[in-house]
Design a protein around this nucleic acid. Structure first.
Length: 107
DNA sequence: GCAATGACTGGTA
DNA sequence: TTACCAGCCATTG
C-alpha cells in the first residue's frame, strides 16, 4: 500500500489534542485550557496552535474560549454548527456565546 | 539567545 | 458588560 500521508502524521501532541476534540459529544464543548489540562501537558496556546494547523479534520467548533466565545475568525461558522448540534447557548442576550455552565465537557 | 507572535486565561478596574 | 494587563508555552525570525 502506498502509505498515503494522512494529516494524522502530525506530532504526538497534536494527535492527542485532535483525539480529545473528536471525543467531545455533540452539543458539548471544551475550552483550550480544559483540553491542555485534560492532557496534562502544554497550554491553551499550544492547543490553539494545533487547532489552527490541523483542527480542520475535527469538530473545531466544539473548542472555544473559557468565556464561551468560539474560535477567533470562525465565529460565524461555529454559530451555524451550534444551531445544528443544539449546543446550549446564552442566546437572546449573547447569541454568539455558548452557555459553558451546561455545555462544558466532561461534566 | 532574544524579541515578537498566536484559534488563550484569569484578575482587576 | 468591556478594557487592560501579566502569565503562559511553543514556534518563528
Amino acid at each position: 500500500m502506498t502509505n498515503d500521508p494522512p494529516p494524522a502524521d502530525v506530532d504526538g501532541y497534536a494527535s492527542r489534542v485532535l483525539d480529545v476534540v473528536d471525543a467531545i459529544p455533540p452539543g458539548r464543548v471544551m475550552s483550550y485550557g480544559d483540553i491542555a489540562e485534560y492532557l496534562g501537558e502544554g497550554g491553551p496556546r499550544q492547543v490553539g496552535r494545533v487547532m489552527a494547523l490541523w483542527g480542520g479534520g475535527v469538530a473545531w467548533w466544539r473548542v472555544i474560549h473559557s468565556d464561551g466565545t468560539p474560535a477567533q475568525g470562525h465565529e460565524r461558522r461555529a454559530l451555524e454548527r451550534y444551531r445544528d448540534e443544539k449546543t446550549p447557548m446564552r442566546s437572546v442576550r449573547d447569541p454568539v456565546r455558548v452557555d459553558m455552565r451546561r455545555a462544558r465537557w466532561p461534566d
